[in-house]
Design a protein around this nucleic acid. Structure first.
Lengths: 224, 224
DNA sequence: ACATAAGCGGATAGGGCATTCCACTTGGTT
DNA sequence: AACCAAGTGGAATGCCCTATCCGCTTATGT
């Protein structure tokens, strides 16, 4: 019997119980990565999935493979958002909307925020989707410049830089992350706009931000 | 015999060999934190200092105490830069110069980049210096607004947000960190300026940035 | 029903880390 | 010179991590 058409990638079709475990792993990893970021341990994901560690490693021998499987759909949403933005009648509105959308995806998901700032050379599907989204975005740039709404010195690389910056704010601002991120994005859009009439979201209250800066136990943060 | 005037803080003066070890620890920690950020392990610092682990813990029972001792001078430089900026005849030039300086300090030191985005409640001296620098900066804001060069809707909280954003870029851009950081700061200054004639540093070359995004083994980055 | 390949998860090896303990050494004082 | 409080470093403890091994279980095709 031929392997199912979709399964060309994986040599043989998985046994159905294995398929179930695979789904369980991805679901668990999705939740854990979303909350804790990509530094979550393989062991904690196996525990969350209710499978043995060996099962996790058998299915995903490297962290990158697991990450790729988990975030393929989020990356697809990113790609789709860029393409949809390109269809906008006003290139600037599309540009602005896409940036707000993708930064919002980051705010909603710690893991994806990191994925958007990294290059996973070996995860071909993931990188292809990123690349397609990026291509749609660069097209939008040209149109927005032609419209006269986007500054001429904006370059496509300003997008990954913004994504890194936004990830940094989200990781450091604690409780105030959402507000601080929106503020950052507002400022950046103002910098990008040829006509800086862009309104600006409010900054977080000083005390909120200060409280947010007290790090919770997490990778990269000292405990004491 | 009275304790030396400077040693009021520490109950008794340290024995001279202990004082030497303390300095060795701080020097080693300074180097390690600069290169690796604050997630460096206590053990690795003790090794780098050439002292036993127990010695490190005896002198600095918590990570925070070590961090405070290591970065007191960098925080002082930050404070001094803010105060000096306040003395500038042109408030905008001072504002701009201070932001470039502090973001440059971050670019030069991974550990300090993180320190500037965190709140160490218990490290009083450190926080006092931060606070004094921040106060000088807020004074500058008012003057720069009065000059008409700084937008009226800039708020002091935009500074910590920028520092978090910059730390994010520095941590994620690898080889291209310096260029990417300067580009980010340029964009932000443009957003802050009432008259956006600000010139912009060039963005990193696409390939450089992409290569930089391939993470080296570091906290928060998957190994495989 | 049964044979068997596929899959399972506990156990284990090997490492790093934070933190504490303790027997030994040493600087400073008398 | 001798004493001892202060200081030292390495060992020990206990935790979590990655990665692999291996004996047991089970889905699946006949």
């Amino acid at each position: 019997m031929e392997p199912s058409p979709d399964a060309r990638k994986r040599p043989r079709r998985l046994r159905c119980d294995a398929e179930l475990n695979r789904d369980r792993i991805i679901d668990a990893a999705r939740k854990v990565y979303r909350r804790e970021g990509l530094s979550a341990s393989m062991a904690s994901i196996a525990r969350a999935a209710g499978v043995g560690i060996a099962t996790l490693f058998r299915r995903f021998p490297t962290r990158t493979e697991l990450i790729a499987a988990v975030f393929e759909d989020a990356m697809e949403r990113n790609r789709a958002a860029a393409v949809a933005a390109g269809a906008n009648e006003s290139a600037w509105d599309g540009f602005r909307g896409y940036i707000e959308t993708v930064c919002g995806l980051q705010a909603d998901n710690r893991g994806f925020a990191e994925v958007l700032t990294m290059n996973f050379g070996s995860a071909k599907d993931l990188e292809r989707k990123r690349q397609e989204g990026f291509a749609a975005f660069t097209g939008l740039i040209e149109r927005a410049k032609a419209e006269g709404r986007l500054r001429k010195d904006f370059t496509p690389e300003d997008l990954p830089i913004l994504l890194m910056a936004n990830a940094g704010v989200l990781g450091a601002a604690g409780d105030a992350a959402g507000e601080a991120s929106r503020r950052l994005v507002g400022q950046m859009l103002r910098a990008f706009a040829a006509d800086p009439a862009e309104p600006l979201p409010p900054a977080p209250a000083p005390k909120r931000l200060l409280r947010g800066m007290v790090r919770q136990r997490r990778a990269g943060a000292p405990a004491n």
